[in-house]
Amino acid sequence: MAESIRLLVVCLGNFCRSPVAEGVLRARIGVSTLAGRVELDSAGTGDWHIGEPPDRRAIANAAEHGIDISQLRARQLAAADYRHFDWLLCADRANLRDVRARMPTGSHAQAALLLDWAGVEADGEIPDPYTGGPAQFEHVFHLLDRAADGVIARLRHEYPDRLG
């Protein structure tokens, strides 16, 4: 059996953007030919929300699109993540800087901006909807939905041997 590809989506608190990204990617990959071949998780660079479910607005917005993220719990990026995951896909440039600054010597993972890596927008950032309202959460959802298409396409193109 082929080895899975391991993706970790990272934002600031693992409270809004990264849990929605994890949910969208799980849903989209789960109904693709990559189902069961991609390991997904999410984390935050900060520790404010450890153990908490995602923001209620993020849960509600994802649910409007048929995706249940209510069982996810926030966690902080750990040193072990750099050894376990292939890619640490960051919501914005500040997250990417933090992820790279914490990267231990000899790390396995590579870090990139999610929207850029997925081919959605060069150097693109996913804005933090935390201080916004429903329109901001909806905008983030649509960016992540587009990113899911790009993630699937990139995985199929770059990792055909590992994904069987």
Rank of each mutant, 00 (worst) to 15 (best):
A27S: 12
M1S: 09
D128P: 00
R37Q: 13
S32Y: 08
T105F: 15
T131Q: 09
T105W: 14
V151Q: 06
D98A: 05
S18I: 05
I5M: 13
L115A: 02
C16D: 06
F15D: 05
D41Q: 11
A94Q: 04
V38H: 07
E121F: 01
R17M: 03
E52D: 15
L34N: 06
S18Y: 11
H139V: 00
L40H: 13
Q110I: 01
A118V: 02
D41C: 05
L12W: 08
I5T: 12
I126D: 02
N14Q: 13
A94V: 01
A74W: 07
G106Q: 09
E158A: 09
G164W: 06
L88M: 04
S107W: 11
L34P: 03
E125T: 01
A58M: 11
I59F: 09
A94R: 03
H139E: 11
I50S: 08
P104A: 10
C11H: 04
L144A: 03
Y130G: 01
T131I: 04
V10Y: 07
I67Q: 11
P160V: 04
R156M: 11
R75S: 10
A91T: 02
G30R: 09
G13Y: 08
L34D: 12
V10Q: 08
L89V: 00
R154I: 00
V20I: 13
D128T: 00
A63L: 15
A79F: 08
Y82S: 10
